[in-house]
Amino acid sequence: MSDEEMYLHYHGLLLPKETHSLESLKFVQEFTFEDEDVVTVTYPKSGTAWMQEILPLLLNDGDLTPIQTIPNWDRAPWLEEKRLAVVVDQLKSPRALVTHFPYRLMPHSFHASKAKVIYVMRNPMDVMVSSYYFHQMAAFLQDPGTFEEFMDKFLEGRVLFGKWTDHVKGWRHTDLGDRIMYITYEEMVQDLPAALRRMSDFLGRKLSDEVIQKIAEHCSFKTMKTNNMSNFSLVPKIYMDSDKSPFLRKGVAGDWKNHFSSEQQAKFTSVIRKDLEKESFSLPWSLD
């Protein structure tokens, strides 16, 4: 199938038709945010499924019911996907939501609300590696080609949701003030309880150390990989073939070192740095 058959073009972005439609995109633009809503924002492959596990637990004082009984795409649905319209009326306040949207496409009601945002950033080299494997196993996405070919696409923004640097720049330059919190995937890998405590404090949840520890245990990569409500094993094989690559593949930081040649790394970092050279913020990790 061609790109045209597989993808929607929406405000300069590529979105897969399997999960997005003109109706779902209209639905989100007319969506009414509530002040208690919490949105995790990520560029694809930056820890979205992890946050779909974490957010409901933080917002429900560690009650495991949602992560054991509701698939992650229904307990913390994507704003822009078809599924939101189906489940939105079943979501209890405070609602946990996720999105890959750039800041410029967030609906009007989001800006008018007091909804909070947790923006999760991940080293773009690891993002690209994860995305490369995802394209191999997801039948509704174009074959990624060679690693080198996919890297060129990634750097040029000819991938889902556009350029990584555009996404980061948009969300780093907001007028949201204390409504937004930034955290990295790497911080979460390094010390998940500390990351959960930061999120809990940001959301105004007074969770005990015992509850934080309990959430950390249930949100570990090992536990999530065995939870059918979280590991995407409920998705039929015709859409996502875990034999080609499991959806929850490694859950580590720094796997890019096993994939990039020194020449590819130099090229990749050069483009990313050039895209960010006029920015007032610095990246939280070295690209070397």
Rank of each mutant, 00 (worst) to 15 (best):
A96I: 05
G62C: 04
N228S: 06
G177H: 05
I212R: 12
A195F: 06
G162Y: 08
Y182T: 05
E148N: 10
M188H: 00
E23T: 14
P77C: 14
E81L: 15
W164V: 09
Q29E: 13
K267V: 12
M240D: 00
G145C: 13
H135G: 14
I70T: 15
H218Q: 12
L22P: 06
K222P: 02
F33K: 07
P16A: 01
R83K: 13
I272R: 05
W78N: 14
V98G: 01
F147W: 10
E210T: 14
L84V: 09
L234D: 08
L59S: 07
I272N: 09
K17H: 01
V38H: 01
P71M: 10
E81A: 15
L8Q: 03
F140R: 09
I212F: 11
V168L: 05
S21E: 05
K82T: 13
K237D: 08
L59N: 09
M188V: 09
N258F: 01
D152N: 08
H9G: 07
K250E: 05
L155Q: 06
V252R: 15
S233D: 10
L13W: 11
F202R: 00
F154A: 01
L79S: 00
A112Q: 14
N123T: 00
L14N: 02
S21M: 02
T42C: 15
F161N: 11
M137C: 14
L59Q: 12
E34D: 03
Q68D: 13
Q90N: 11
F110M: 03
Y7I: 04
P66T: 00
D152A: 05
E23P: 06
T40L: 10
R249L: 07
Y185A: 11
V28D: 03
R198Y: 01
K116G: 04
G157S: 01
Q265D: 07
D201N: 07
E5Q: 13
M106A: 01
A138I: 10
K92T: 13
E23W: 06
R75A: 09
E217Y: 08
R95N: 02
S230N: 15
E277I: 11
E30M: 11
A216P: 12
L283M: 07
E81H: 15
I215R: 00
T32N: 14
V87F: 12
M181R: 02
V127P: 05
M199Q: 01
H135Y: 14
K163S: 14
N227Q: 04
L207Y: 07
M121T: 05
M240L: 15
F31S: 08
E149P: 04
M199H: 01
M137Q: 15
S113P: 00
M1E: 12
K17N: 00
S113T: 03
F140V: 10
G12K: 08
D243I: 02
L276E: 03
F101W: 09
L25E: 07
H111Y: 07
D166Y: 04
I272V: 15
H100V: 11
G157Y: 03
R95V: 04
E217G: 08
G157Q: 04
T226M: 13
F281W: 06
D63C: 03
I180M: 01
T40Y: 04
K82G: 03
H100I: 10
E186A: 12
